[in-house]
């Protein structure tokens, strides 16, 4: 039981997502980390079928996810968006927003009160409109909506980055608890490696549309690639120009080979993959 992307390619203007592979089992969390322009959000959109890849396959529990009807697909995979205020129609009450999924999926019994309790919102909030809510409350409504159809998999793109750190703490804890209780597969996307490490068992590090490293969190932390190390412990330094490897500019291990060719993704054993010539 898993969500799997295999050899995905996607070109968007100058940007290219290249040879992208991802796999997350039900009951586990995969963290995807990278900076702006790394391709995180492209991966998010492909996983939610908001963007069609140029090449490659998308499997849902071993079957072609692209062949499912939109309706069947949305019962299985749901998304949590970065900007909660833009993900909620400001003219609809919270009550309506939480009932809306059931207007389309009429075979499911609406469970609005239960959903509210699950995301720790008080029942009074049902009469409110999204602009009347705080950022944290809005993100809880987005999360409740995503949970309404009882999906097997959840994909969250920077679900906390627009929030205060105190509220980030609340949302992270909540998301982790719900993922475990519902035994969902979660893809947690963030630019903050510390959040990703808190949430996930598996880690995937992206830069400029390439996977730089992937593997279990423990394996990666034992022997992180130069880019992951840079994310864990950033030090300001002068950037070199050029290079084929996208991390050439700041890499302490950079050598002549990195100028000429992009390193291949190779295995260090135990499912740990790194893209580096000199590790």
């Amino acid at each position: 039981m898993s969500v799997e992307l295999v050899k995905i390619e996607k070109k968007l203007g100058e940007f290219r997502l290249r040879d992208f592979n991802l796999r997350v089992e039900r009951g586990e969390t995969l963290g995807v980390v990278g900076g702006s322009g790394s391709g995180k959000t492209t991966v998010f959109k492909i996983l939610l079928r908001l963007l069609r890849p140029d090449r490659g396959s998308y499997f849902l529990d071993g079957r072609d996810a692209m062949a499912l009807s939109r309706r069947a697909f949305s019962r299985r995979v749901q998304g949590v968006f970065q900007n909660a205020s833009r993900a909620l129609d400001p003219r609809k009450t919270v009550d309506f927003l939480l009932r809306e999924p059931y207007l389309i999926h009429r075979d499911l019994e609406p469970r609005v009160e239960e959903l509210l309790r699950e995301v720790s919102l008080p029942p009074e909030i049902l009469r409110s409109y999204p602009p009347q809510l705080s950022g944290g409350q809005q993100q809880r409504v987005v999360l409740a909506r995503a949970l309404a159809l009882e999906p097997d998999y959840l994909v969250a793109d920077e679900p906390t980055s627009a929030l205060d750190p105190t509220v980030q703490v609340q949302i992270l804890k909540l998301l982790k608890k719900i993922q475990a209780r519902r035994n969902m597969g979660l893809v947690f996307i963030s630019h903050d490696i510390n959040q990703v490490l808190y949430m996930s068992q598996g880690l995937l590090v992206m830069l400029s549309g390439l996977i730089m490293e992937s593997g279990g969190v423990e394996e990666v932390l034992k022997k992180p690639s130069p880019y992951t190390l840079h994310l864990l412990n950033p030090r300001p330094s002068r950037e070199r120009e050029g290079g084929a490897c996208p991390f050439y500019g700041l890499c302490p291990l950079a050598g002549p080979k990195c100028q000429k060719e992009i390193p291949p993704l190779r295995s260090l054993g135990e499912g740990h993959l790194v893209r580096c010539h000199y590790m």
Binding site: Q137, D164, V169, L172
Partner: peptide, 19 residues
């Protein structure tokens, strides 16, 4: 505020309510 930071190996604080 000072404990509301996500770091590996650190417990997250109990945060109730919102500003």
């Amino acid at each position: 505020l000072m404990t509301s930071v996500v770091k590996p190996g650190k417990e997250l604080p109990e945060v109730t309510g919102f500003s």
